[in-house]
Design a protein around this nucleic acid. Structure first.
Lengths: 234, 234
DNA sequence: TTTACAAGCGTAAAAATAACGCTTATCTTT
DNA sequence: AAAGATAAGCGTTATTTTTACGCTTGTAAA
């Protein structure tokens, strides 16, 4: 297919470069991480950067973001959402490029760290990021703010847990996102009062001698929460 | 300047059409309105549509949205915020076009209705919209949801009031946004407890015989609210 | 003068949040 | 085998916030 359109409409409009950039957050017990890459192309070759790609004529913006994520992490079923556009004229000295930033959330496991290494990528602690190219630092700040805000009215954090999880695990997750301690007992009460969790018979003993009961989300209730936007201020 | 870039980077990337579309909400005592236009160009000529424009190489995305707003309403100082991108491949049969939707909020006055008429535009009651082209209906729904959600943690509604306003006016505004009645007395209590309002000596008597005191936002406090994201659930 | 009505003021009940003590299960140490 | 340590789990109470709603006030119209 031709690079310039063969269709008869809109012939006078400018054609621009459109990119997607991904802010990939990783969740670990000791805090939030961010996946950064050493840029392969000029300008700013070798510098730390978010990962991105140009959007192709024959793919949707969302699919472009998914493609980027898959290519650079191997993952496909990750929570990802649009953050917004970064569209100032001079944001990229290489050319006029409009970026549509997306942020993704994943649970970090050992395997992911290996994958990262293969791609010259590295997980950084969220408070210890290196200098980033272009407006990527701004994107990260915006994504963090959006993530925290979103966590208050969407059960967003749940995306980061395995199918079976304990209440303390869920709490730690919110502590990491909100960056503050939550009362163990009040958290339990609040979350249970929502009636979205199903208690299982098994216990997880990896983090305490006593062991904590495993739970699972009740899909219907969980879906309800997503749609109605339950208040998750904890 | 050349339409295709003269810069040496990113030469292999596709160049796309990028548009901004504006969802323009108008606030009136009896409800929210939406400004719609009869499209001037093919395809879908003469059909009802949001207003938009292609983004030019030499303008930022945000400025493109501002330009659209100014050209079609004459207004410049209007609250406007990005809603998100609409980037599926086949959303516009005219060509591959990615749209970045923006929503704007304005207080509706008589003069605005006249302006609208000049541009073959029309204010519609939000519950009585005509069929819209492309994915514009979806954009409107998304914008409404975002507006309502946003109103809960940002003093967004304040953008819609004149400098001096009464508490009942502010309440009606939130009633219109939330689409439900708010208790007169509780609203007053809550809003006053936030300490963002300065009571003036004057009264506004246009909507009651007794008259309601006029208030003004205390700029510093207001700014604080915007930044900290005060909870505005009423 | 009376009436009508939105504005404004206050109180009390109910619900949600926050603070925190105590018990339990199980592993580790003595 | 007993004691100690620790995270999990259960419960109580105080505080704050939200909700419901009665009553008074000022002013124009009847």
């Amino acid at each position: 297919m031709n690079k310039s359109s063969s269709k008869p409409f809109y012939v006078d409009a400018d054609r621009l470069l459109l990119a997607v950039d991904c802010i990939i957050f990783g969740f670990e017990r000791d805090g939030l991480k961010l996946l950064l890459f050493q840029r392969k192309v000029a300008p700013f070759q070798q510098e730390w950067s978010l990962i991105g790609s140009f959007v192709k004529t024959q793919e949707s913006v969302r699919n472009a973001a998914k493609r980027v994520l898959k290519i650079h992490t191997g993952l496909t079923n990750v929570f990802m959402e649009e953050l917004g556009s970064y569209g100032s004229v001079d944001r990229d000295p290489g050319d006029r490029v409009i970026a549509i930033a997306h942020y993704a959330l994943m649970r970090l496991q050992e395997e992911d760290k290996q994958i990262a290494a293969e791609y010259k990528a590295q997980w950084f602690d969220i408070d210890e990021l290196p200098a980033l190219i272009l407006d990527h630092q701004q994107m990260v700040e915006d994504a963090l703010e959006k993530l925290r805000r979103k966590a208050r009215y969407r059960p967003i954090g749940f995306e980061l847990l395995p199918e079976k999880f304990t209440i303390p695990q869920l709490r730690v997750l919110y502590e990491v996102i909100y960056q503050r301690a939550l009362d163990r007992r009040n958290f339990r009460k609040k979350i249970l009062s929502m009636n979205v969790l199903e208690k299982l018979a098994e216990k997880d003993k990896t983090s305490s001698r006593k062991g904590a009961y495993l739970y699972r989300f009740i899909p219907a209730k969980y879906q309800e929460m997503v749609e109605k936007g339950v208040d998750f201020v904890i």
